[in-house]
Design a protein around this nucleic acid. Sequence first.
DNA 1: CAAACTATTGCAATTTTTTGCAAATTCACT
DNA 2: AGTGAATTTGCAAAAAATTGCAATAGTTTG
Lengths: 249, 249
Amino acid sequence: MLKEERQQLILEKLGTDKKVTLVELGQILNVSYDSVRRDVIELEDRGLLKKVHGGAIANSYLSMKASRGLGIANNEFNIITKKAQKLIENHSIVLMDGGTTNFYIAEQLPKSLEITVVTNNPHLATALAEHPKIEVILLGGSFYKRYQITLGNKTMQDLEHINADLYFMGINSIHSQKGLAIRQYEESLLKQKMMSVAKKTVSCVIEEKMNRIENYKVCDVDDLDYLVTSLNPNEKILQPFKGKSVEIL
Amino acid sequence: MLKEERQQLILEKLGTDKKVTLVELGQILNVSYDSVRRDVIELEDRGLLKKVHGGAIANSYLSMKASRGLGIANNEFNIITKKAQKLIENHSIVLMDGGTTNFYIAEQLPKSLEITVVTNNPHLATALAEHPKIEVILLGGSFYKRYQITLGNKTMQDLEHINADLYFMGINSIHSQKGLAIRQYEESLLKQKMMSVAKKTVSCVIEEKMNRIENYKVCDVDDLDYLVTSLNPNEKILQPFKGKSVEIL
DNA sequence: CAAACTATTGCAATTTTTTGCAAATTCACT
DNA sequence: AGTGAATTTGCAAAAAATTGCAATAGTTTG
């Protein structure tokens, strides 16, 4: 069995199931787990999937683009999107970075909205081509394949010239004491910069990201202006955030 | 067994199975593996399949034709791509802008190539994620939805800091007297800037773009260093370009 | 027609890539 | 904090690719 053949099958399975375990794959493909693991690593480097402990899950951008046409609505994302939209004023300058949640919000923006979106995420830029009234500014810099965003000095410099009204910060984890954190060091710097050039910062987090702690802290919960979740305001998981200065939606 | 006969059989098998291994082919065709391997290399050069370690897999957009048993003409884009690749040296900085031809060339670049690609085309950036050894720099600026590239002052400024070795210029029309032209005024300015920051400029044009005249002239044919076409060098359509200083491939 | 040239093919030696194994480490979950 | 599962790392065997070379067949040229 050819390596490419295996990888193709992995992607196919991932396309239907959204997730696979290495054990599963090893059995189906009838090769050692090591080979499967190496395949998965390779595919991750190409940005075609995301590797997790014990297996892999489908690339969020790819699967979203695929599911968009089918009208498959993800409930949690939809709730968040609805709430987030209320924060966006017409004729404002909105800063958005990478991450699935931001991508989803951008896609669902009303077609009538006249705003300028500044982003370091090319997927978001191309997706917004469908919105005739939204102007898109793409931040330049070196392109990080793994996270599919631009990063680095150039991107930071570009930001100096931006004065945004609102910043949608994508985040990997949020914790009432330890604050908001992310997996990449460089990315955490960029996010801090973005906060500094925006009047207000909002973070939209899905439930699975709450009360986890990722590697690099971006800021404290108190530094946020708004926190958007899909949860009901008096869920117990939200209680630790209540005393903070952040407004919870 | 004739070479042509073998190659025909390889394509047929590939049309039905989508993949073949060299061992398999060597047994069926009853020739040395070396011969099979050379056949596969030849077919890959003509863009009719994709060679991988241990065998070959079908070229998606050609497999349909092949399964119908049609004789497949060489693909115009593939011929151009092969010629264009010869111009790219390892460890060089390559500038590429928008356009289908450039996108295709980028996609087909060998996986082993170690270069830096600078582009104002987000699609190209994400497509190049498949190439682990290629570094991608995305030029920032306002995103021009119609042509899916970034454009404007910011993009121009970003270019000031680039010293590229080679520039692949996408173009809408080429004419021996009227030069190379494009539909958008802003884009023509950008292309001129790109030429000025690259040591050499190459344009890859498909036949339908030859001897037409679009709205905004970018430069004269003489200003190009290389002109890549799918045509045979002594085609009559190429004669008017012969006296020029440009090298025709 | 013969000599020179070219293209094709197979073989052998060398290098590269892939693959599976095992030991040591890290991770996730109770 | 401990325990089993998953991952990482180094390593070695196997498979495949590359290269140079020589033999053969086919083509061109004088």
